[in-house]
Amino acid sequence: MKPDKSMSDKDTTKTTPNDEPLIAGHNYDGIEEYDNPMPGWWVWLFVASIVWTPIYILGVHQFGFINSYEDDLADKQAELAEWRTAYEDANPSLDVSDESIAAYVGVAEHVEAGSALFTKNCAMCHGPAAEGLIGPNLTDEYWIHGPANSNLFGVITNGVLEKGMTPWGSILSVEERSQLVAFIRSVAGSNPPGGKAPEGEIATITADAG
């Protein structure tokens, strides 16, 4: 009889179902043992896992019909490159220039969006009012990497790694970066309290500086 059939056995009078052999002499502090066979499905799953083992090992490390770490990475990277190419083909890269950014400057909706982005991503280093903290003051007339819209856009995009400025090019879109420039323009000359001492070279900029 298959062992699992008696799982639902509610017969309480028998302590030993008579179709199962109790092993004589196996009695430890009252605990006895049956000589039941191992369940077939258990044996076969175990055997299957053992048979699969050399196939998998050889597949990865000898014959290569299963991907190794490096194969996987190469596949995934190639796929990512494809996505990027396809996206660029479909969305020809926006021609970013002083003028294209100038279209954002002074537009309330963009300044507002830029302000939100600034609070989330930039305030930790440039201060909540762009007054400068770890990074330079962005409200004064001094610029380390040049005063033009495109200069600001470039620093945001590529970062200044040696000084700790993060490159945001892969994180924020062209529009978002343009909105950030618009926000920075909007705080020019706001002279917030606790402003950091000027760094870089002086350059007066107007709202639509080019």
């Binding site: 989330k120 930790m124 280093c125 770890i134 790694l161 000084k163 700790g164 993060t166």
Partner: peptide, 21 residues
Amino acid sequence: GGKYPDLWHVLHLEDPRSTSP
């Protein structure tokens, strides 16, 4: 290493939420 300025780490370790809300 090199990702943030030294001062960022001072502020962050002193009060993590000042640099990372």
